[in-house]
């Protein structure tokens, strides 16, 4: 279980508990946090679950697979701390993680 803070583009914060094994994307969807569309449901096929990860947590995340890297490479408003939240698996180590949403997923 990890406590994750999701911050909407307008600054609104949502702190929720997310079970280990779920993705950061699923944590948002299951807790009615808006701003992550995840149209493909986590298949790494749509790039509509883009988030900015708190820099301090970047080293704790599993590295990006080639597919995610490339999808992000072509997405909008990408920054060095951009990730697709469907590809980040939640574990105890991510307790306290903060992610911020982009203005839009499309």
């Amino acid at each position: 279980m990890a406590k994750i803070k999701y911050i909407e583009f307008n600054g609104k914060e949502h702190v929720v508990d997310v079970k280990n094994g779920l993705s950061v994307m699923e944590g948002a969807v299951k807790n009615l946090v808006p701003g992550i569309d995840a149209d493909c449901g986590g298949a790494c096929a749509c790039a509509t679950c883009h988030v900015y990860v708190d820099e301090a947590f970047l080293p704790m995340l599993d590295g990006m697979q080639e597919m995610e890297k490339t999808m992000l490479d072509f997405a909008e408003k990408v920054k060095p701390n951009s990730r697709l939240s469907c590809q980040i698996k939640v574990s105890d180590a991510l307790d306290g993680l903060t992610v911020r949403m982009p203005e839009s997923q499309h």
Partner: peptide, 12 residues
């Protein structure tokens, strides 16, 4: 197939 650049740019 296993070719995200072609897919993402293809959409554009």
């Amino acid at each position: 197939v296993n070719a995200a650049p072609e897919y993402m740019m293809g959409r554009k």
